[in-house]
Amino acid sequence: MARAASTSQKIAWTVVAWAVAFVIFFPILYTVITSFKTEPEAIAGINLIPSGTLKSYIDVQTQRDYWRPFTNSVIISLGSTLLALLIAVPAAWSMAFSPTRRTKDILMWMLSTKMMPAAAVLVPIYLLFRDFGLLDSRIGLTLMLTLINLPIVVWMLYTYFREIPGEILEAARMDGASLWNEIIHVLTPMAVPGIASTMLLNIILAWNEAFWTIRLTTTNAAPLTAFIASFSSPQGLFWAKLSAASTMAIAPILIMGWFSQRQLVRGLTFGAVK
């Protein structure tokens, strides 16, 4: 008995689901709409059809220097992701392929470092950054984000690598493949999808991190999170500009997110839910 739902039922579910989805998505939709309004229009009550002006986008770039925080966000999120991968790939690799009795404990311990509340170590980190001249520097922030995301990167890579069958390695070895050949021709092709997924998720996490990026920067290294947060200071209502800046800040990551739904589930649940 195939569960063929009747068409009317399907239409009913479609209506309900689209309505709910619309409500959930509405704040984002409304932001995008508002970004194409003039400032007076933006505060003139609900109006879903904007006048279509691009003024806010131009203003944000000319008056507020949008591109510096944008560049900082790109550099910091990409940089910290690559650095974390560089450190984590060998670790995850060895844990997946030559596990010991302690491997599981080490993984759990790594996860537990994520339990430490960021604010709890704000004081020492702030003072260390001050003393090493890392405050408001891209290098400092990149290092910071590398450290806080490292456990997740190791975990994610580990769950991917573990699925690569070990027999393939042995078969290659039997065939007389050298270690180098083994890595290049056998392992890399199988590991690349996992590494790519990890990278994608980590860029999203780094892009949206909003504690250290706000507290450890002022202007020079401030990424988009800090830039947008600066709009909260009461200097009048500039909703159209805020909307334009917000739209530009979330668009790249939103699109990346849409493509990474599956990986997101795997990555953030440490492979427990697939």
């Binding site: 984002i28 947008i228 979330i250």
Partner: peptide, 16 residues
């Protein structure tokens, strides 16, 4: 549409 809010950075979400 439903999963989109997750990708919105906290300051943007809060200010919207």
């Amino acid at each position: 549409l439903v999963i989109s809010p997750f990708f919105v950075m906290p300051p943007v979400a809060a200010l919207i």
